[in-house]
Every structure is written in C-alpha cells, then in structure tokens.
C-alpha cells in the first residue's frame, strides 16, 4: 500500500496520553509524520457517559493546527447517537480522530497483543484518512474503506484500499 504524496502533509498528533512508541510505529508504517504537543481532550469529556465526544475533539484539533490533522487517541470516543465510535473524520475536510481504546484485546478481557494492536490501529487510522479524503464506505469487504463496527470487522478487512478507493485517495490531493 502506498499513500499519495499529500498524505505526508497530514500531521499525526497525540490526543491525551497516547503511548509515544505506538505513535512512532504508526507514523513509520504509514509515512505520516508525527507531531506534538498532545491535545488536551478534557473539553470533550462527557461525565454522564464517561466518554469523549469525538465531534468536539475534531473542533479542538482544527483550532490548534493549520492544515490536515489526524488525532491519535487512547480514549473511549462517542457521538451522541451512538454507543461508541472507533474514530470520526470530516468528510473531505481537515480533521480526523481515531482511538485505540476498543482496539486493545484487554478491552474484551483478553491478554494484550501488541502486534495485533498496531495492525488494527494502522487500519483504523488509514480508514479515517480515507474519509478525510472524502471517501465514503466501500461495499468491498476487503477494502480498508469498508465499514467496521467491531474489532472482528476491523480484522476481517485487508490492509489495502481497493483500486477504486485508492484512485479516490490519489485524486484528493488538493
């Protein structure tokens, strides 16, 4: 999988206390440069749900950075109508965020598995990057842009965009 040149202009920034070595690895594998400092997520915290409002995080990210920005979070994210989200992106916009909170095996009562976590995190980040480029969900179940509402679905897809989505990604240069 090769990302188009514009992806190198996106900034990968930690949201809250994101493990630095994990951020490093995601950045290395995707070619998207990691930035700093970390974003303070507290304005997005909803005490009633004990979760973080991802839409609010997108606003915070945009307020702090110029250009396209991708937030990497370890928090439990939600949007008001859904119980949780793995991530959120402005379609064809400037900001996106993804979280490893529900990608960790520990969340499901299983022993930790770092390799699997990195694999899932990269896929989720690339999926949100696709939305950032304006791509909707893809009916091809193997494509990175296919919808995933559970870790099983994240694991089931490949680590590649289908040819149509790859082409859409290239076009989104801007």
């Amino acid at each position: 999988m090769k990302l188009p040149a514009w992806a190198a202009g996106v900034r990968l920034v930690p949201v809250g206390g994101f493990p630095p070595e994990l951020l490093e690895e995601i950045s290395r594998r995707s070619g998207i440069p990691a930035g700093s400092p970390a974003l303070d997520p507290s304005p997005a915290y909803d005490p009633a749900r004990d979760q973080y409002d991802s839409t609010r995080l997108l606003l915070e990210l945009k307020a702090r950075w110029e250009g396209r920005v991708m937030g990497a979070a370890g928090l439990d994210l939600f949007i008001p109508v859904l119980t949780f989200v793995f991530g959120e992106a402005e379609m064809g916009g400037r900001a996106a965020v993804f979280s490893i909170h529900r990608l960790r095996q520990e969340f499901y009562g299983l022993p930790p598995n770092r390799d699997l976590l990195v694999e899932r995190a990269v896929r989720e980040m690339l999926h949100e990057l696709g939305h950032l480029a304006g791509l909707p969900h893809c009916p091809d179940a193997a494509c990175l842009m296919s919808p995933a509402h559970s870790v099983e679905q994240v694991d089931a897809k490949s680590a590649e965009y289908c040819p149509a989505c790859q082409a859409g990604l290239e076009r989104a240069g801007g």
């Binding site: 839409t55 949007i79 008001p80 109508v81 859904l82 959120e88 992106a89 379609m91 939305h131 909707p136 969900h137 893809c138 009916p139 919808p147």
Partner: peptide
C-alpha cells in the same frame, strides 16, 4: 440530526 447525517454520509 447532525451526527446521523454525518455518520450515514460516511456509510455512503
């Protein structure tokens, strides 16, 4: 409305 519109737009 906003979050559902956003979510379903993402879904295609």
């Amino acid at each position: 409305r906003d979050s559902l519109v956003h979510w379903f737009t993402e879904e295609g």
